[in-house]
């Protein structure tokens, strides 16, 4: 192939220059986005903004309810999706004997991962909001389906790394299947569960389209249990409403800055946890 081709084209070394340019563009873009959001948003971020509810009477914009709602919906989603996702991963790696069935489950998880969030929003509206009412609970349940593949896949990856000899050793000592799973398999899948959780929290914090029609737009600060049964906007939904519908760009940028800081924190957390587990696995 090499011999028959035309004399070495000068275009080829250009690859080096072009890829350097592209990488520079990607880096600049990231720096610009982080810098712009923080510069525009941080000045608007005040204690008053994050500690109060919005009020039409005093024309005040406060994002406390949105912060609380985001926290509630994240916790609730994890509470449901963790057992489901880990359980499904355990079934796939420890129990599933039929390859076709396992293949079907994996295909389903892939399909779930590819479905756009607006479709989750619609189906969540039909399934959950129409039965539970537009509420944080309906939003959280919608997010459970969205995040199921993330938890499943990461748990599965780390279950695959548990050496078969551990299981055989435990079986050899007379342990039943469930005991082996409980004492040998599950403790070793911590890494996958932690990674899956971090990724899911990132997705939940950034999600908006799926929540618009399931959790609604309300800005009332509630305690956990009241909030679950009442409508409420998360930070992302509040950002959208402030920017697109109310023209409150100060509040929108402040929320964007919070979301940006959270995204950076999650990225750091993911890196740190990867390092931690790498060190632990090495020793």
């Amino acid at each position: 192939m090499m011999m028959t081709s035309s004399p070495r084209r000068p275009l080829v070394p250009l690859v080096r220059v072009l890829s350097l340019l592209a990488a520079g563009l990607t880096a600049l873009l990231t720096l610009f986005l982080i810098g712009y959001i923080l510069l525009q948003g941080l000045p608007h971020l005040s204690w008053e903004l994050v500690s109060t509810s919005p009020s039409y009477i005093s024309q005040r914009v406060g994002i406390l309810p949105d912060l609380l709602n985001t926290l509630y919906i994240t916790l609730t989603t994890l509470l449901f999706v963790l057992p489901l996702g880990v359980g499904a991963a355990v079934y796939l790696t420890e129990y599933a004997s039929s390859r076709r069935l396992a293949g079907a489950i994996e295909y389903a998880a892939e399909a779930l991962a590819g479905i756009p969030s607006i479709i989750y929003g619609l189906v969540g509206m039909l399934l959950f909001s129409n039965t539970l009412g537009t509420s944080l609970m309906a939003g959280a349940l919608t997010l459970v389906i969205m995040n199921l593949p993330t938890i499943m896949r990461n748990t599965q990856e780390s279950l695959k790394t548990v050496p078969q000899s551990y299981r055989e050793g435990a079986f050899g000592l007379g342990a039943g299947k469930w005991r082996v799973i409980r004492t040998v398999v599950l403790p070793n899948c911590l890494e996958g569960v932690v990674t899956g959780c971090i990724l899911s929290v990132g997705r939940i914090l950034g999600e908006s389209a799926a929540l618009l029609f399931t959790a609604g737009f309300a800005h009332t600060a509630n305690d956990f249990f009241t909030a679950l049964s009442s409508p409420g906007a998360t930070l992302t939904v509040a950002l959208y409403v402030y920017a697109k519908e109310q023209g409150e760009f100060g509040a929108a940028f402040a929320i964007a800055a919070i979301l940006m800081l959270l995204a950076l924190a999650i990225n750091l957390l993911a890196t740190l946890s990867a390092k931690f587990f790498q060190r632990r696995n090495a020793s």
Partner: peptide
């Protein structure tokens, strides 16, 4: 091409880009 340090940094940058919520992209776009 990238030297290890730059590879790690740029890899982080790409992960950050992936983690920015779509409404934030929308806001900057607007």
């Amino acid at each position: 091409l990238a030297p290890p340090r730059i590879r790690a940094l740029l890899g982080q940058a790409v992960s950050v880009l992936a983690g920015i919520p779509s409404v934030v992209y929308g806001l900057v776009g607007m």
